[in-house]
């Protein structure tokens, strides 16, 4: 009996570790390349250990034409997306969480339905429209489309954040002298803040990672992924790898920050 339990345990850890390696090894390898000398990419064979640390590749990538501007654009777009989707999405999420009103389920379904619309169907006509109204090739154009993509998600997350804050608390505040608005500001908002911040950061990641719309809606004001994908075929391998790492790193940091909320964030949006 005891022997069997021990074997089960060993199998469990072996499986768990194998899957962990599967997830982590590629990240390690791209990091390894990004911090090797440029020419290491072409060497054969090449070490699997970080024996020749060098900033050359990353420096090359960062100083390449357009990289810095594209990074700045990416940040601007992601920040715009974050603010827009929170400003529009949080009130809607609050309404879904706190009020019973006719058509509430229909609204929820409608929000879920928006997922079905592919990026292509939004960005191609919008590109045409944006050209017409002069918004094309601006961070705003990309941010608007990214917001359309992130908004349903933010609405569902904020709704679940507010659902998890008992209604009683706001009502108690109202019996203690608060107006509905001040009850919200003093009670629900502070309690929702961590969840909302996580949602915001997550929106940032969504926008930071998006490439299709960004590539279609920009020409000179590229975001980082748009820049990388459009110059991909003409650029040397080490540029691509450095770019890959450069895009992964911030997303990983953000993931680390919001890790406590991660499962709620995703579990909810898929319900």
């Amino acid at each position: 009996m005891k022997g069997r339990a021990w074997i089960g345990s060993a199998l469990w850890y072996m499986g768990a570790i194998a899957l962990a390696l599967w997830v982590l090894a590629p990240i390690y390898l791209i990091g390894l390349l990004a911090f090797s000398p440029r020419m290491a990419v072409y060497r054969w064979p090449r070490p699997l250990l970080p024996l020749e640390f060098s900033l050359e590749t990353m420096r090359f990538f960062v100083s390449a034409t357009g990289t810095l501007a594209a990074t700045r654009n990416s940040v601007v777009v992601a920040l715009l997306t974050m603010m827009l989707s929170l400003a529009l999405g949080a009130p809607a999420g609050y309404a879904l969480a706190r009020f019973l009103f006719p058509g509430r389920e229909a609204v929820r379904m409608g929000i879920l339905m928006t997922r079905m619309f592919p990026m292509a169907i939004l960005s191609i006509p919008l590109a045409v429209t944006f050209i017409r109204i002069g918004l094309y090739d601006t961070p705003w154009a990309v941010a608007l489309v990214h917001t359309a993509m992130a908004l349903p998600f933010v609405i569902l997350i904020t709704a679940s954040v507010f659902v998890s804050i008992p209604r009683d608390l706001e009502e108690a505040a109202m019996t203690l002298g608060c107006s509905p608005l001040s009850a919200f500001l003093r009670i629900s908002l502070p309690l929702a803040l961590p969840g909302l911040a996580a949602a915001a950061l997550f929106t940032f990641v969504i926008s930071w990672n998006e490439v299709f719309a960004a590539a279609i809606l920009t020409l000179r004001q590229r975001t980082l992924p748009a820049l990388v994908i459009t110059v991909l075929n003409e650029s040397p391998l080490y540029f691509r790898f450095a770019g890959g790492f450069f895009m992964v790193a911030p997303a990983l940091v953000i993931l680390l920050i919001i890790r406590r909320f991660l499962f709620n964030l995703w579990g909810i949006t898929s319900r």
Binding site: P166, D168, L169, E171, T175, S179, L191
Partner: peptide
């Protein structure tokens, strides 16, 4: 009138003590 103008106080079943 809204609750705040009724000069009442209430103890909720869940207590609704503000956690923060």
């Amino acid at each position: 009138l809204p609750p705040r103008h009724r000069n009442i106080a209430m103890v909720f079943q869940s207590y609704a003590v503000f956690p923060h």
